[in-house]
């Protein structure tokens, strides 16, 4: 009885290995499409037209990137996109913060209903307001400028920003706000000095989501802009398709260049992004 029992060898568990293999196969499948673009961007048009878009390039050919980046239209497109994305991202997050703060910390009779109306705005198809918006901006002569694109993205970002910020602010203890107010802080100081610094993860989530959506958007600039020097990069890529119709490599290089900003933003905010998702978003 007192004999100490030797531990039997751990049972062999085949699961981790199986799962690893499954994930590896899936990862390769997931990478293939992106890899195709990267490969094409590194090959000469001649190589590609020989019919091997999908094989590894023999030499690193950077001519496609040179071609894409030296095109003055591309510069214009990138600049326009930045001019739309930065103000619209900042604007929608700012407005979402203001509204979210009221709904979380200063609720009033009917505030829940108002909140639901705002959030419902997230679900309806943006095409439903296309025509009236076009007419509205046409009336004030803003068609074929970047303004309507900025304004519409800001307005359409309000629901999601309000939802996330409200949910995140709700997790900040009320006692913090009350303590600050007892100390003589104004509501504005509570928001900017106490609550916002605690909400960096939520802001990061929104920054990534909004920047990505607005940068990548196609519909609104397509509707509101006409002339080539007002187009954003996503429209530009489609327009340049004609110019580079058989130059697959240049198209690939362009796509990569156009995707770099969103990738950079994601990588920059990644740590906060995951944390913000864990803390705020999951609580619907």
């Amino acid at each position: 009885m007192a004999e100490s029992t030797p531990m039997p060898a751990r049972r062999f568990d085949p699961w981790p290995a199986t799962i690893f293999v499954m994930l590896a196969v899936l990862a390769v499948l997931f990478l293939l499409p992106t890899a195709g673009v990267v490969l094409s961007s590194l090959k000469t048009t001649h190589d590609i037209s020989m019919g091997d878009l999908w094989s590894l390039p023999a030499t690193l050919y950077l001519g496609n990137f040179r071609e894409a980046l030296s095109n003055p239209s591309v510069h214009r497109y990138l600049l326009n996109t930045l001019l739309v994305t930065l103000p619209a991202t900042t604007g929608s997050i700012t407005l979402g913060v203001l509204a979210g703060y009221v709904f979380a910390k200063l609720p009033f009779r009917g505030s829940n209903a108002l909140f639901l109306v705002l959030v419902a705005g997230m679900f309806f198809p943006p095409q439903a307001i296309l025509v009236p918006l076009f007419r509205m901006f046409n009336a004030v002569g803003l068609i074929d400028t970047l303004w309507p694109v900025i304004v519409v993205h800001t307005a359409l970002g309000i629901p999601i920003c309000t939802l996330l910020m409200r949910n995140f602010f709700a997790t900040v203890p009320n006692a913090l706000r009350e303590a600050a107010i007892m100390e003589g802080a104004s509501e504005w100081q509570v928001l900017t000095r106490v609550v916002l610094p605690l909400s960096l993860p939520a802001l990061a989530v929104l920054a990534v989501l909004q920047f990505t959506w607005i940068w990548n958007d196609f519909l609104w600039p397509l509707i509101f802009t006409k002339s080539d020097d007002k187009r954003t990069i996503m429209i530009g890529i489609v327009n340049l398709k004609g110019q580079y119709s058989v130059a697959w490599g240049v198209q690939g290089a362009l796509s990569l260049v156009a995707s770099l900003p969103t990738l950079a933003v994601f990588l920059f905010f990644q740590r906060y992004f995951i944390k913000g998702m864990t803390m705020g978003a999951v609580k619907g």
Binding site: T34, G36, V37, W248, Q251, F266
Partner: peptide, 19 residues
């Protein structure tokens, strides 16, 4: 790897898959 495509736009995703 699984997250990467989210950063791409519909235009680019469309083009990749057209190929």
């Amino acid at each position: 790897v699984f997250y990467l495509p989210i950063c791409l736009s519909a235009v680019i995703v469309g083009q990749i898959w057209i190929w």
